[in-house]
Simulated scan of single mutants.
Amino acid sequence: MAKKVVATLKKEGGKAYAKVIRAVKSPKTGSYTFKEEIVALDAVQDTLKG
């Protein structure tokens, strides 16, 4: 699946995108889950802050 996502994100004339993966700690169990988002390259810092 990763190859398909990368191939569709690299179209000519489109915006540059990045895949952001964050580890989020559960308050109940203390275990970590991973949240994946595909965001525009210029919005990566804003996504990581929020």
Rank of each mutant, 00 (worst) to 15 (best):
E12H: 10
L48G: 12
A16G: 04
Y32V: 14
K19P: 00
D42I: 02
Q45A: 15
E12M: 08
Q45Y: 03
K35V: 12
S31F: 07
K4I: 12
A18S: 11
F34C: 08
T29Y: 05
K3P: 00
K25E: 11
K25A: 11
V39I: 06
G30R: 02
G30C: 06
E37N: 09
E36Q: 11
Y32E: 14
T8C: 10
I38L: 10
G14E: 13
Y17R: 07
K19M: 10
V5P: 00
K15R: 12
K3R: 13
T29R: 05
K15D: 14
L48H: 04
K49P: 00
E36H: 09
A2N: 10
P27M: 07
K49N: 15
G14H: 08
L9P: 02
G30I: 01
E36Y: 05
S26D: 15
A40V: 03
S31P: 00
Y32I: 09
V24D: 12
K10C: 13
I38M: 07
T8E: 13
L9K: 02
I38V: 12
L41P: 00
V6L: 13
K25P: 01
S31D: 11
V44D: 05
I21C: 14
V24S: 11
P27S: 14
V5N: 08
D42T: 06
A7C: 04
K49A: 15
T8F: 07
Y17K: 08
A2S: 10
K3W: 02
Y32N: 10
K4D: 15
K25R: 14
V44N: 05
A23E: 12
V39H: 04
K28I: 10
S26A: 13
M1A: 14
G14V: 07
K10D: 13
V39K: 08
V5Y: 05
K19E: 14
V20S: 05
K25H: 04
V20Q: 06
G30F: 05
K35P: 00
K4T: 10
A40I: 00
A18W: 00
K19H: 06
I38T: 12
Y17W: 12
D46F: 03
A40L: 13
E37P: 00
V5W: 02
L48P: 01
A23F: 02
D46Y: 03
A18T: 02
L9Q: 07
S26T: 04
K10V: 06
T47N: 09
E37V: 08
M1N: 12
E12N: 12
K25D: 03
G13K: 01
V24T: 08
I38G: 10
Y17P: 02
G50I: 01
L9S: 08
L9C: 08
I21M: 10
V44H: 06
K4L: 14
G14R: 06
V44E: 05
K3D: 15
G50T: 07
T33W: 01
V5R: 13
F34Y: 15
K15C: 09
I21V: 13
V24M: 12
T33C: 07
V5A: 15
A2K: 01
A43F: 01
A23H: 04
I21E: 13
D46A: 15
K11Q: 15
G50D: 13
F34T: 08
D42N: 11
A23C: 05
K35N: 14
A2T: 02
V5S: 08
K49H: 05
K3H: 11
